[in-house]
Amino acid sequence: MSAPPAPPMPRTAGSAAEAYRLEGELPMVEQPAVPFVEIETVRAREFIPAAKEAFGALIAEQGQAKLIRPTFNWAGRNSLFPLHWGLACCAIEFASAFSARWDSERFGIVPRSSPRQCDLMIVNGTVTWKVAHKLITLYEQMPEPKWVIAMGNCATGGGPFRTAYSVVPGVDKLVPVDVYIAGCPPRPEAMIDGILRLEELIRERRE
């Protein structure tokens, strides 16, 4: 005679998390309860005078010159609007970085289609000599302050096409580059990492 089937595991013991524990899994550690904090909603018409007052006090205390640059840097690095160049396969990774999975918009990065609304140029792809002067034109149309990220091996140094007859060996031959992202193509995580490093650069910006 075969053994009777094992009775189902009792689900009564422990917390709700314990009840959903899979067979063979380690028991969950009870986390201390997070105290619930009620957050007061502040309307804009109340926030702006309050912020004005606080900034006024800070300026009076520290001096305008000392405060204004960090404030601009703080605002600038949290609202980078990239102008993107869909030149090659890196643009696919760039697009997926803005999809639901990676959601780059939580860093304040919103791709725009006009260079006059952008302060960050992301060159993702192989730059040819044919497109080079258009790239320079669009870079010059961006308002200051502006930054450039070379995304992927082609934009960084020409990649596998470095010695080709029609490819610019690195976009830094055309415009000044702040951050290089390696990879062929780089994953969206790498792109986000590059942008966070650029934010570090902006944080340390003095003039």
Partner: peptide, 23 residues
């Protein structure tokens, strides 16, 4: 190819340049 490009790259006699030369 960009305007003013003088070579014809798919000819057998075409020599690849070093990137710096080309630049």
């Amino acid at each position: 190819l960009p305007d003013g490009y003088e070579a014809h790259p798919l000819l057998r006699s075409f020599q690849l340049h070093e990137p710096e030369e080309l630049e």
